[in-house]
Design a protein around this nucleic acid. Structure first.
Lengths: 356, 356
DNA sequence: TCCGGGAAGTAACGCGCGTTACCAACGTAG
DNA sequence: CTACGTTGGTAACGCGCGTTACTTCCCGGA
């Protein structure tokens, strides 16, 4: 790329937009009157006649307010910023959708800044800081941080200058409000569903046991079993890589370890990708789903769950709802209202399909 | 939700940020001098000494420029707007990623406005208009329109007020520059790959035959065959719903129609979801992939292609590249530079995995 | 007749910054 | 000594808009 010698060349077409002054002149009133009418001030005394005259002028001239100028004068920008690696790793992109939709309904704009950009100094070195800084330069009224998977994070210092909410992650220092999925509840409903279908011997294909998702989901599974007077057989829990291959290997282990009588009749896969691999292991052995083995997943990755055959019953991560709730929480914070709790858990609902 | 009686309550913390005036006072110079230093004006005569004094003051006070005010004064916002349904239908979310990354590299912000919002009048009624309008109020310097799948679209009138580029779609009226995937080239490389592997009898699982993707990909397939002196047997082309089930049904038709000798040895599935279904049909019949039947897909939906077993060889849609190219094209347009062509085709590269 | 008070509107300031025009001091050439 | 360019700045205007203080007019009551 050639370095521009003059970065200031304003060659862009300068389409001098119509301003309030133009509207005022066209309607034969003062700019103040126009401002009053457009901002619907209740205590402003403008006669109905001039009001319509102004509105007509707005229509005729195609006036469009200048959001930036308004922000400058009113000292409120109607912008939230969201810092996220999701743009790059789109697994949890529904967070953005939920946040975006909610922001749009509130007539606010969501400025998205990536937290894992290539022009960084080192790997993960000051990226979020740069993103945060950029957003603050835009005078966002609040900040959101969103992660692709449930985990602890550190947010830049400067985030403290403005209300901040974490989505699908939590502050390792425990100061900031956060919105996270109720992993435990999800694990519980999954196993409850299997129990309800008559399964008592349930294999679990586990994730890396230290991540919050694994901890919570497994705990939920234990709770559900306990409520039915059962215990989780440690031998039936096998961890693997969070991939289809990992799920395949783990499922093979579980399925081949026992004679048919003792073989589990159901598998709780802690994510859908592993369930995908488990499907293959099951089918390879001439077994049917859900006839011989019921399978339940987690995450509800649409592209997998809805297209596996049979379609996968799974527990959904409420990405969209978390995004929306994040914006709502932020709106409350910026309005000075108290928020419900420092950590809000969002339900992980069961999605019935055909694998149980 | 209780309706706020006074929408103006500015309860948000008004953290009066430090301005250039503060910096100037702290450094003992005029605000103008600060402005000159910060904007790196070449022809400004500021001594090295005061320059460092100002920079020091900036550091000490933690000055952060106000992007909105700068935009107002300089009449350039450094913002692009992108109108897209992708936020809602995340299939092609990589377009946003590509655009976002490129914009970030150019030190610009991408304002994302959804084109399929719930608060609309009717279905698809004036949504894009509202989104476009909102973006223009923000004084974006250019507009992008992105579609989830390759198709013709109509853009709102007001888009003409500002440079505009279409991504993964094209203007039905043919006026606006657009960036679209080279579907034909993709179809060609897919079939070339099959030919190279020795397959001459190739079944095609087709999409709805009228959509641009189907037309282009099929045309490419024909070209590749023609170059090898072969023709596409119309009987081997069967259309189905663009789902795993559709692919399953279509594959069953093709596989069951012929005795083993005449059965095609390869399937070109025009998208990965259908390939997913085809996998099942093939496996059900006790056939192996790629041993008995080679399969090649299209779209490279990572969650499918990379996790099917065996992993699916497919042709990638260059979403990310299209997004980046869209922003680059827009940058050229806003800079008044000529663009390369009205319609830019982006390569659809073959992704070798294990199904051929 | 005068006065008080609401109705209808306007002038003017400031938000934070880019930018242009201007000014003072200091050489240096004629 | 005057003229004139150069260096190192500063004063002041305007971007488009929100907002406050102020003015003018009219009407009803005393």
């Amino acid at each position: 790329m050639a370095k521009s010698t003059n970065p200031d060349t304003p060659m862009a077409v300068k389409q001098r937009g119509v301003t309030m002054k133009d509207v005022a002149k066209h309607a034969g009133v003062s700019r103040t009157a126009v401002s009053f009418v457009l901002s619907n001030r209740e205590n402003a005394s403008i006669s109905e006649e001039t009001r319509t005259r102004i509105n007509d002028a707005v229509q005729e001239l195609g006036y469009r307010p200048n959001a930036g100028a308004r922000a400058l004068a009113s000292r409120r920008s109607d912008w939230y910023g969201i810092v996220t690696e999701i743009v790059t790793a789109p697994f949890a992109v529904d967070i953005i959708k939920g946040a975006q939709d909610q922001a749009w309904l509130d007539r606010r704009f969501l400025l998205i800044a990536p937290s894992d950009q290539a022009d960084a100094v080192g790997p993960n070195e000051g990226l979020e800081d740069a993103a945060t800084e950029k957003l603050l330069e835009q005078r966002v009224e609040g900040l959101l941080y969103a992660a692709t998977f449930h985990r602890g994070v550190h947010v830049p210092e400067s985030a403290n200058e403005v209300p901040t909410v974490l989505i699908n992650c939590f502050d390792a220092d425990g100061k900031l409000p956060s919105i996270v999925p109720d992993e435990r509840g999800g694990g519980r409903v999954a196993v409850e569903r299997l129990l309800q279908a008559g399964h008592t011997r349930i294999g679990v294909i586990n994730l890396d046991p230290v991540i919050p998702a694994a901890v919570g989901r497994l705990e939920g599974a234990r709770e559900a079993l306990a409520a039915a007077g059962l215990e989780l057989d440690p031998e039936l829990v096998v961890s693997g890589y969070a991939t289809a291959d990992g799920g395949y290997d783990a499922a093979c282990q579980i399925l081949d370890r026992y004679p048919q009588k003792e073989r589990p009749t159901a598998l709780f896969c802690l994510n859908d990708r592993m369930a995908m691999g488990a499907y293959d292991a099951i089918k390879e052995r001439g077994l049917t789903i859900p006839g011989d083995i019921a399978v339940i997943g987690f995450d509800n990755q649409e592209l997998i769950a809805a297209y596996l055959r049979p379609k996968l019953t799974t527990v959904a991560l409420p990405f969209e709802k978390m995004g929306a709730l994040g914006v709502q929480t932020l709106a409350a914070l910026t309005a000075g209202q108290p928020i419900l709790a420092d950590q809000q858990l969002v339900d992980c609902p069961l999605l019935e399909r055909s694998s149980v």
